[in-house]
C-alpha cells in the first residue's frame, strides 16, 4: 500500500516537475542567446512571467475562426503534456510510463501538430497557411528519422518502452558507435521539431522566414499562453529523451527518496546543459533557407540509417 502511494506520488511529481520546469529551460536559452549578443537578457523567471501575463489578458479571436481555432490550444497543451509525462525524466521506471511507449509519444506530438496546423489554416490568413504548409513539410520529413532512431534504440533494448530503452543505455554504459551516430541525428530532429535555428527562428516575426510563429500568429491571451507553454514542454521533453538516452547518468533506478532527489538534480543539469548547447549553436549559425532544410534532415536520416546498419550488422 505504501508502495502504491509512493508510486502515485512519483507519478504526480514527474507530471508537476516537467510542467513547471519547462518554462525555465526556454528562459535559459533566451538568456544564453542574449549573452552571445552582448545583452543582459531577461531573467530566468521570464518564461513564467510571460505565461502569467498572457493568462491574465483578454483574448481576441478572428471573426473567420471556427471552434477548431478555440479548441486547438487545449488539445495541443494536453497532448504535449501527456507525452511529456510518459517520458521518464528523473526515474527510470515511472508509474506513468504504462500509458504508452516511445511510439505514442511521437504520435501524441503528431496530434498536437495536426491541430496547430489546421488552426493555422482556420483564420484565413495567408501567414497561417504558410506556416502550416512549412511545418507539415518539415515534420513529415523528420518523422522517418525519429522513428528510425527510436527503432535502433528499441531493437537494442527489445522494447519500445522508454523504461527499457534507458535501462539498456544504463547497462551498456560504454560509448557505442550506433549511439554516437544517433546523438547528432536526434539533436537535429529536436532542433527541427521545436522550430529553432537553423530550421526556424523562434524570435522572428519577419513574414517570410516564419514557420511555427506564422501558424500561431493569430493567437492571443490565454490561448497563446497554453501554446507557448506547450512549446516549452515539447522542447523539454525532446531534450529529456536525448539526455536520458545518451547520458543516463544520475537517473534514479529505484524509488528511494535520495535516488529521486539525485535524479531530479541530474535531469535539470543535463537538460540545462543541452539547452545551453543548443542556444550557443543557435547564436553561432545562420538560419537555413527553407529548401535547404530537407538536406539537413536528410543528413540526420543518413546518420540514423547508418546507426541502424551498424546495430543490425553487429559491428558496434
Amino acid at each position: 500500500m505504501e508502495f502504491l502511494a509512493q508510486k502515485i506520488a512519483i507519478g504526480i511529481g514527474q507530471a508537476l516537475f516537467v510542467l513547471l520546469s519547462a518554462p525555465l529551460f526556454t528562459s535559459l536559452m533566451k538568456k544564453v542567446k542574449a549573452h552571445f549578443q552582448c545583452r543582459f537578457g531577461p531573467g530566468l523567471l521570464q518564461g513564467y512571467y510571460d505565461i502569467w501575463k498572457l493568462l491574465k489578458k483578454d483574448a481576441v479571436i478572428s471573426e473567420h475562426a471556427s471552434w477548431v481555432f478555440k479548441t486547438t490550444p487545449y488539445v495541443v497543451f494536453s497532448a504535449t503534456f501527456i507525452a511529456a509525462v510518459i517520458v521518464p525524466s528523473f526515474a527510470v521506471v515511472l508509474p506513468t510510463a504504462g500509458i504508452g511507449d516511445a511510439i505514442i509519444v511521437i504520435y501524441l506530438l503528431g496530434l498536437a501538430r495536426f491541430f496547430t496546423a489546421i488552426a493555422g489554416l482556420d483564420t484565413g490568413s495567408s501567414f497561417g497557411g504558410m506556416g502550416s504548409s512549412r511545418e507539415m513539410m518539415i515534420s513529415s520529413l523528420a518523422e522517418p528519422v525519429t522513428m528510425t532512431g527510436l527503432f535502433v534504440l528499441a531493437a537494442a533494448a527489445g522494447s519500445t518502452d522508454f523504461g527499457g530503452i534507458i535501462t539498456k543505455s544504463l547497462v551498456t554504459g560504454h560509448v557505442q558507435p550506433a549511439y554516437l551516430l544517433l546523438f547528432p541525428a536526434f539533436l537535429i530532429i529536436a532542433v527541427a521539431e521545436t522550430g529553432r535555428v537553423p530550421v526556424d527562428n523562434p524570435a522572428t516575426h519577419l513574414e517570410l522566414t516564419m514557420v511555427h510563429e506564422a501558424m500561431i500568429l493569430e493567437y492571443t491571451g490565454r490561448h497563446l499562453a497554453l501554446i507557448e507553454w506547450a512549446g516549452a514542454l515539447k522542447l523539454t521533453l525532446l531534450l529529456t529523451i536525448i539526455a536520458n538516452v545518451f547520458f543516463p547518468w544520475g537517473i534514479a533506478e529505484s524509488m528511494a527518496w535520495p535516488a529521486v532527489m539525485v535524479g531530479i538534480f541530474a535531469i535539470t543539469a543535463k537538460v540545462g546543459l543541452l539547452a545551453i548547447g543548443i542556444a550557443a549553436m543557435e547564436s553561432m549559425i545562420a538560419k537555413l533557407r527553407l529548401f535547404r532544410v530537407p538536406e539537413l534532415i536528410g543528413g540526420a536520416f543518413v546518420l540514423a540509417m547508418l546507426a541502424l546498419i551498424i546495430r543490425t550488422t553487429g559491428i558496434g
Binding site: 483578454d58 479571436i61 501567414f127 493569430e218
Partner: peptide, 13 residues
C-alpha cells in the same frame, strides 16, 4: 483568473 473578455476581430492582414 478573473473576468477576461474574448472578443472577435479581423484576421491580421
Amino acid at each position: 483568473r478573473g473576468k477576461r473578455s474574448v472578443t472577435t476581430g479581423p484576421t491580421w492582414d
